[in-house]
Simulated scan of single mutants.
Amino acid sequence: MKKTLTISATALAAVIALAGCSTGSGSSSGSTMSGMGSGSMAASSAPGAAGATHNGTDTLFAQGMIPHHAQAVEMSEKMLQKQGMDARITALAAKIKAAQGPEIERMTGWLKAWNESTQTAGGHAMSGMMGEDDLKELDAAQGTEAAKLFLTQMIAHHEGAVEMANAEVRSGKSAEAVQLGKDIAAAQTAEIADMKALLAAL
């Protein structure tokens, strides 16, 4: 269950609020983030927290993961606003929001330090992103239906993030960006396992 990039207005607002920037509103069906390589952009020097140098993989990782995280935050906020939700679901939503919000800020800071745009260039699709219809369905769902839908969507969303993170680990140059890729892959792989178990129990 992998969908190409479609970012809602709410997701864009989340990026603006959390990261102080706007993101692209779509992409073509070109290469995926998992296929991004270090040869896509010459390595360049840059000051800042993410190390002295970076390459195109680092740039695409940050540019792509910012809206990807923003959508996860948006989905989590939808669940936190619902009444009578299973406590395990609200705890998961709160955990995702708390983890990914600060990561958006970190990646935005790196892009600014690297003098790179915070917007992804056209031609890249991001695995796991939900479409507008998916988000509307989640917004309308209630109770156990909403819980199951959230878990199903977030599993696919996390799988896409892990794919993107692993691409960064393979080909990135910035030590801190590569470490974040490792952290995201590890954390979200564990959460996928937890969500699958929770989904089976509902």
Rank of each mutant, 00 (worst) to 15 (best):
E105G: 11
M1P: 09
A165C: 08
S45F: 13
A113G: 12
T23P: 00
V15G: 07
L198K: 04
S45C: 01
G123P: 03
M79G: 01
T108G: 13
S25T: 13
A72S: 13
A46F: 04
P47L: 10
S28C: 07
N166R: 14
G160E: 04
H54Y: 15
M41F: 10
G123R: 03
L12K: 10
A186R: 11
G143C: 07
A121L: 09
A87F: 01
T90W: 08
P67F: 08
S127A: 15
A177Y: 03
A9I: 10
C21H: 05
A49W: 07
S8L: 12
V15R: 01
A193S: 13
K148I: 06
S34N: 07
D134W: 07
M36A: 13
A19E: 06
H124G: 00
Q142D: 14
R170V: 05
H68V: 08
A187P: 04
A193Y: 00
E191D: 09
T57C: 10
I96K: 02
Q188D: 06
M85I: 14
Q71E: 14
S31Q: 13
S22M: 07
S40N: 13
E145L: 11
N115W: 00
P47C: 01
I7A: 05
L111Q: 02
G181H: 05
K148A: 13
G143T: 05
E116L: 02
N55M: 11
G109N: 11
M154K: 03
V178E: 05
V178T: 08
A49V: 12
D134Y: 08
D134V: 04
Q119W: 00
G37L: 12
G172P: 04
A197K: 14
L180G: 04
H68K: 05
K3H: 13
A156M: 07
I184S: 03
G48F: 07
V169R: 01
A185G: 03
A98W: 02
A193M: 07
A91M: 12
T152G: 10
R170C: 00
S27G: 15
H158L: 11
A49K: 10
A49E: 14
T32H: 08
A49M: 14
L149G: 03
K3L: 11
L135R: 01
E74N: 06
A52N: 12
M126Y: 02
G48H: 04
A72G: 14
D133Y: 00
H124K: 07
A17V: 09
I7T: 08
M65A: 04
S127E: 15
P102H: 05
I7K: 01
S40M: 15
A19C: 09
Q71D: 05
T23E: 11
H68C: 08
G128W: 06
T4S: 13
T120D: 02
T189G: 15
T90F: 07
A175R: 09
A147I: 00
S40G: 15
T152I: 00
E103W: 06
A11N: 04
E145M: 06
E168K: 03
Q83V: 13
T59D: 11
M33R: 01
S8P: 02
M79V: 14
S29C: 04
E159Q: 15
K2Q: 11
Q81H: 08
I66M: 05
N166F: 01
D86A: 12
A146E: 06
G160F: 10
A98L: 02
T32K: 05
V178Q: 07
G101S: 15
E103Y: 05
T144D: 14
I7M: 12
D183N: 13
A197W: 00
L198E: 06
A94E: 13
